[in-house]
Simulated assay, not measured.
Amino acid sequence: SRLIGKNGLYEPLIEFAGGVFATCAGMVLIADRVDDPRVRTLGLIPMHVARNAFGRQINSRETLLNIAGLTDPFRAVFIRAPAATEVGSGVEVLARIPEGIVVVRHGRHMAFAFHPELGGDLRLHRTFLEGLGI
């Protein structure tokens, strides 16, 4: 969030007409509330996010995750991951695990507590783009 502010990117990101595909720390930034007062969020998805909800680096892990809309589980790589603890009106929860909510969609935006770009499975990227009509 410091670099976003330093580079004057808050307004351009908030006003961007396309969607945001937010992964890991991006889930923290796209939220409207976070458990760390040092973080200034973009406020694009009404949800509360806990940073490092999984604990320290040693608690990072991979798991097969059932995600609404996908027929087969997705291999999710969680690295010092956040998790949403609550979501607001209009936020669609697509996956949750004991640590919290890990996949959400809100309008043109999607947020993931893990790194869907690792592993070569493009289903979530396709889901995001299809939601934008691309």
Rank of each mutant, 00 (worst) to 15 (best):
C24S: 08
E117A: 09
D72F: 03
D35N: 15
M47D: 03
G120T: 12
Y10S: 02
M110K: 05
L29T: 01
R123E: 07
I45L: 00
L42M: 02
L94P: 07
R126E: 14
L124Y: 13
V93Y: 02
T127N: 03
A31D: 01
G100I: 11
V49N: 00
E62P: 01
Y10N: 02
A31R: 12
M47S: 04
R51I: 06
D36A: 10
H48A: 13
V93A: 04
L65A: 09
A25P: 03
G55E: 03
D36N: 13
V49T: 08
E117F: 13
V104K: 04
G19K: 11
D35E: 10
R96A: 15
H125P: 05
L70G: 12
A84C: 06
R40K: 15
I67M: 06
A31T: 08
E11Y: 02
A83C: 11
E99Y: 11
F16H: 12
I134Y: 15
R96Y: 00
F21N: 08
R61S: 14
T71F: 00
G100M: 08
V20G: 02
T23G: 02
D32A: 02
F16Q: 03
E92C: 06
E15Q: 15
I97S: 08
I14A: 05
R51P: 01
S89C: 03
A31Q: 04
A113I: 07
T41A: 00
L94W: 06
N59L: 06
G69Q: 10
